[in-house]
Nucleic acid binder design. Structure first.
Lengths: 200, 200
DNA sequence: AATAACTGACTACGGCCGTTGTCAGATTAG
DNA sequence: CTAATCTGACAACGGCCGTAGTCAGTTATT
């Protein structure tokens, strides 16, 4: 038999690449736990390893340094959110108000279903330098997306300001809803956000 | 002569209480520097002492621990902002639009005149646990103040959401203006904010 | 001159951080 | 069986943190 490469050797029933991928995923999930903790984002290498029940050596097997994990966790959650939004928009009537409602409900449900993700998306970039330093926050991109949708009878700077203000209003409302400051029905929140989006 | 109390003895030309107060003020100012740093709030006891050219012993002479300094710095800046707002409102015609404009311009000028203060008020509470844990952020109070001003033909929850969204929009706009993300004239920013406030 | 208070520079403790390395034991391949 | 590889537990480095203490030297009072 040909000498198989180390990556394909079986150990404990699985191959090395499988185990490595599983460990990476465990680290990612632990990262979501810590970066989306209710008490605020606090992700350290040791803490994430304790949480994932892995050793630091396996951390550096999957990520070159701490900040790369933070970025990967954020991108992990952002990808899920993007997918949820795409799905919601695809299965929705194409008129703008219905689209806005579909998108908002999808996002709110994602946050309610797993508040960690909401906190990672909304709160972590404000706190963690690894996210705020890069343009890694999605909010500017979201603001640009809104700006394109605005009516053209206003000046460019006015549209930029309304877009930024709108993003601020939505994120602030979502954050307040997440941490319990805003006690209100899920549907009321969705209604209000849709109204903000469609009237702007 | 009666033996004067230690606090009133003169040393280096000033009394103990004077020197102590001066040191406290120097620590406060250094705290504003660090808590309002452009790279993000990073206030440690050693750093603030280095900055104020004092020893750690004098830190604990004026503040029981690190968090108390953070709170004091925030309150220091908040008091100045309150004063600026009160002055602006006092010397303004009493109709609501003029009041809104006066308040917004006062706040924007305070931020432009000393961006550290703007960052302390807007950014530090999001980052530093000593501020976010307590209700020490002024934003909820500001939201409540706005809520009372809203028309009464809407439901209570609607007014609460409008107020929270409005605060989010304003803070987001101010933050973007502070860090250069939003490149726009000061007057344009003021106009936009006043429009948001008076049309809500 | 002697006593007391104040000041500045410095050290020390325990803890967490990111990162790297070591070492005994388990599991597989040849 | 032997050798190679994978695993887990742990130590170590330098650094910053909050907090407390020491000690020589300067300045005022008596």
């Amino acid at each position: 038999m040909l000498s198989q490469r180390a990556a394909d050797r079986t150990w404990g029933g699985t191959t090395l690449t499988d185990r490595k991928a599983a460990r990476r995923l465990r680290l990612l999930e632990a990262g979501v736990d810590l970066l989306g903790a209710p008490e605020g984002p606090a992700l350290s290498v040791r803490a994430v390893c304790r949480h994932a029940k892995l050793t630091e050596r396996y951390f550096y097997e999957s990520f070159p340094d701490r900040d790369e994990l933070v970025l990967a966790v954020y991108e992990h959650v952002a990808a899920a959110a993007r997918q949820a939004l795409v799905d919601a928009v695809r299965s929705s009537p194409p008129d703008p108000p219905a689209l806005a409602r579909a998108a908002v409900t999808a996002f709110v449900e994602l946050m309610v279903d797993d508040p960690r993700r909401g906190r990672v998306l909304l709160l972590a970039p404000l706190t963690d330098p690894a996210l705020s330093s890069r343009g890694m926050a999605l909010l500017p991109a979201f603001a640009a997306l809104i700006r394109e949708q605005l009516p053209e009878d206003e000046s460019e700077t006015d549209r930029e300001m309304t877009a930024i203000g709108l993003v601020g209003a939505l994120t602030h409302l979502f954050s307040a809803y997440l941490d319990g400051t805003l006690t209100v029905d899920r549907d009321q929140l969705v209604d209000h956000c849709v109204r903000l989006l469609t009237r702007a």
